[in-house]
């Protein structure tokens, strides 16, 4: 297993919320901008890669108990979203990379999306 901290350091993501929880382990990953797809496909302790940066990203991540959310292509959550993320204990990270690149890099670190069929 690999921690959020290792991922952030290696892939140079910028953590924005709940940053004292970066030792949390990551067991898999999922990428989608459709929230219901994430609800169906992602599971606890995974990272979610998405373009979306609004409040409901936090709601979905909290709902599923995700390890963190990687927001791609330079999108940044607003202060209200960051506040909600702090309250809900959700780690939000941002990067200027595309979702495709992030997924490829995560995969090269051994993070897989296998077993998403629940």
């Amino acid at each position: 297993m690999i921690s959020l901290k290792e991922i952030i350091e290696k892939l140079k993501f910028e953590p924005l919320s709940f940053v004292h929880s970066l030792e949390r382990q990551v067991t898999g990953g999922y990428a989608s901008d459709l929230l219901s797809c994430v609800i169906k496909g992602a599971t606890k302790d995974w990272v979610w890669v998405t373009l979306q940066s609004h409040l409901n990203v936090v709601a979905v991540a909290s709902l599923l108990g995700l390890s963190g959310v990687i927001i791609t292509e330079g999108n940044r959550p607003d202060l209200e979203t960051l506040g909600r993320a702090e309250n809900e204990g959700v780690v939000l990270m941002v990067t200027s990379k595309t979702t495709f690149t992030v997924v490829a890099e995560l995969s090269s670190m051994g993070i897989e999306g296998e077993g998403s069929e629940k």
Binding site: D33, L34, L35, S36, I39, K40, Q52, N56, V57
Partner: peptide, 15 residues
């Protein structure tokens, strides 16, 4: 555009 309306909500509930 916000990522809703994928037509999966009721299917997820059913599941």
């Amino acid at each position: 555009e916000l990522g809703f309306g994928a037509g999966m909500g009721l299917a997820n509930i059913k599941k």
